[in-house]
Design a protein around this nucleic acid. Structure first.
Lengths: 156, 156
DNA sequence: GTTGAAAAGTGCTGCGA
DNA sequence: TCGCAGCACTTTTCAAC
């Protein structure tokens, strides 16, 4: 059979399985098997292989943050005093539970974070008390998201 | 019983269920029931209620993009020629499958996007051919993520 | 690697408290 | 409203191809 439909060791079947489950992880293996015209056992074997390869990190429930009172999504450009303080800053930011993503990046900012807060006063508290006071952080720039127009996974 | 442990109609049990499933959606209800010392049926009822309320959007498989050859995560600050072109731009960017997040936002940029590409030449193609050519987009600024240090959901 | 079916475990539903 | 118990469905395993 032809290989290299895509990268690494994934063949077409693997990619099809991933594509389906990336949209909805609750679809049963038996249904996927029917759709792709293979047996349920095969789906199971492929999934196990991909889990062992580290391609699949796990699954999670997607909740709507706004429905439970988390109304503000913001991005934070962070300037460090010295680039070498990066590792330190990561450890400190891990303690701030409102930080949901943190990137070490190129460009004007040393680091770039995504944070989710309940309201403006919560955001102010996180910025002033939890983040700007951290050792090594010089200053931050805040971009507030007024609307999330697209939110999806990559298409394989 | 006391209500308002948190926002809206969620009581402590609901929040505990969500917290567990947000980290790993594959944990069986029976196990959650044991952990929280209630019956499996109760978990089921609570989940159903939260799904109907729109708090739970669904579940999805978390894959490691790097393991399947998507090596570059970048953020894109987008300047529109006119703010009124926002709706148009959203529709056009929905067609670019490398765009996984798009926000309408405050600050210097009109819009802010997160994109995932295979390599630098793929990124260049997406930027030059797919995005910068779109109607209404004046220019973009690219921030490339060299390392994703934190990636998680909000803590309730 | 794949299949099909049997065994084990989980999700769902209705009745009772 | 919650918990228990039985049924239906899914996942998992395994011998055979």
């Amino acid at each position: 059979m032809e290989k290299n439909y895509t990268n690494y060791d994934l063949d077409k079947l693997d990619v099809q399985i991933l594509s389906i489950l990336m949209e909805d992880a609750s679809i049963p293996y038996t249904e996927i098997a029917k759709k792709l015209i293979v047996s349920g056992g095969t789906i199971h074997v492929r999934m196990k292989k991909m889990e062992e390869m580290g391609i699949i990190r796990g699954s999670n429930l997607i909740i709507n943050p706004q429905k439970i009172g988390f109304d503000i999504t913001a991005f934070l450009g962070i300037y460090l005093e010295k680039g070498s303080q990066y590792a330190d800053a990561v450890e400190q930011l891990k303690q701030v539970k409102e930080v949901v993503e943190l990137h070490y990046c190129t460009g004007q900012y040393s680091m770039f974070a995504k944070i989710i807060c309940k309201d403006t006063s919560h955001l102010r508290k996180v910025l002033n008390e939890d983040i700007q006071g951290l050792k090594g952080i010089q200053r931050t720039e805040t971009i507030i998201s007024l609307e999330e127009s697209i939110k999806r996974q990559i298409t394989l």
